[in-house]
Amino acid sequence: MHLAIMVTNTDNSSFAAQHPLDAEKFTRLVHLARPDWQATAFQIHEGQFPTDLDAFDGVLITGSPASTRSGLPWIAPLLELIQQIETAQLPLFGACFGHQAIALALGGSVGKNPNGWVHGLIPNQMRARPTWTQPLPANFKLYGSHSECVTQLPAQARESATSTGLNAGFFIGNHIWTSQHHPEMSPDFIAALTQEMRDDLGPEHYAQAQNSLSQPADQAAFAESLARFFEQAQ
């Protein structure tokens, strides 16, 4: 299996330089379940788009501190590419920004989180359960960090999970799946990110995030579900 990782993360800070970048994080996530799979990264936020989607068995779109609603010059071409991927029914997974971009591209909408930042280890409640999610418990935990959310699903989508009363994932047929959260993040990275974002989060959200990190994420189960998603869509 050969996957394209579409990197949308615009963070070029010194903090980002001290940690694995998103292409490495998502490759590690995939290799947790399928260590022999290949991955090729494209820096979408720098205008680097794949020229031949037929070369890949599936696509992942990463998270980003950028907003899908920001009007950055690479976002409209990305939304158009998502529409092409959907038409071709090439398996597509999106996390956080990727989740929101897929929703926007296919007719949904995105807005601000009503309660501000969601950050830390986030409980998710499974709703409709597609076959590939069997490894995940009905209530699973993933690391997350976002202040925007999908406010309306695409018409053809079904909700796969909710968290903090908001949509946390959806699927379309057997070829699109998303998560509002960050299954690729490691415990060390989310702990460092929480410290880095302490002022942005504010005292209440920071304290909640710190308390949440005493428990593990369901990363391995999610990685297995992600592998099964790409396998069943072939």
Rank of each mutant, 00 (worst) to 15 (best):
L193S: 09
D199R: 10
V150L: 11
H146S: 11
Q134K: 13
R127N: 14
Q134S: 15
M197S: 10
R198W: 12
K141C: 15
N124I: 00
P135G: 13
N167A: 12
G116P: 04
Q84I: 01
P187G: 09
G120M: 03
T133N: 03
I176D: 00
Q156A: 15
T164C: 09
R158C: 09
D199M: 11
E196A: 10
Q125E: 12
T164V: 10
M126G: 01
G116H: 09
E184T: 07
S186A: 04
F170D: 03
A168H: 07
K141N: 09
N113I: 02
Q89F: 05
N115P: 00
H99N: 05
C149I: 08
M185P: 07
Q180C: 08
G108Q: 06
T131K: 14
R127S: 06
L136C: 00
A103I: 05
H182K: 02
S145T: 04
A191Q: 06
T178E: 06
A168S: 04
L136K: 03
I176R: 03
F189C: 08
G173H: 04
M197P: 01
S145V: 00
V118S: 05
S179Y: 05
L193I: 11
S145M: 10
A105Q: 02
N139Q: 14
Q134M: 15
G173M: 09
L90C: 03
L92Y: 05
I172S: 02
G107W: 09
E196V: 02
F171G: 11
A191C: 06
L136G: 00
M185R: 14
P183S: 11
N167V: 03
I85K: 02
D188T: 15
L166G: 04
Q195C: 10
W177T: 10
L136H: 03
N167E: 12
A192S: 12
E159G: 09
Q100F: 00
L90N: 00
Q152N: 13
L121C: 06
P130K: 14
G144C: 09
H182I: 03
L142I: 04
L90V: 01
H119V: 07
Q195Y: 11
I85P: 00
W132R: 00
A157I: 00
N174W: 04
F140G: 04
A161S: 03
P183E: 00
H175T: 03
L166H: 14
W177S: 13
T151W: 08
P154G: 04
T131N: 15
F93V: 03
P114I: 07
Q152C: 14
F189G: 05
P91Q: 01
E184D: 12
N174T: 01
F170H: 00
Q195M: 13
F171T: 14
T164R: 15
G111T: 15
G107E: 08
